[in-house]
Amino acid sequence: MNNLIPYLAVSTILFSLGLAITVTKKNLILMLMGLELMLNAVNINLVAFSKYDPNPEKGQVMAIMVMLVAASEIAVGLAIILKIRKFYNSVDPEQLDELKN
């Protein structure tokens, strides 16, 4: 594929779907999945544009960095979600409405 437009289109659609998932779902794990989809969409853009860079390693290293940041984010996020689940007995963000029990 030497045209840039299909990459941008796929990335746009993935980002919008990730945003819709993050906004609508009443489940913290699903919201994390939406975040991952959005990060993936950004990665597609980085890699697609790096094709036209004189030294394409920059964009690819940036994409790998985004991936590792996503990995650490999911590790910490899941730990927090497990704590929330233990404390509130639910992973519905609408029920997390008390600060002190």
Binding site: I29, V47, K51, Q60, A70, I74, L78
Partner: peptide, 22 residues
């Protein structure tokens, strides 16, 4: 897009790490 290394790390990190963690 011409970046096989990023594809391999996508499969290893996302599918092998993040998805299993999820």
């Amino acid at each position: 897009a011409g970046s096989e290394y990023v594809a391999a790390s996508q499969i290893m990190i996302y599918v092998g790490g993040i998805l299993i963690l999820l």
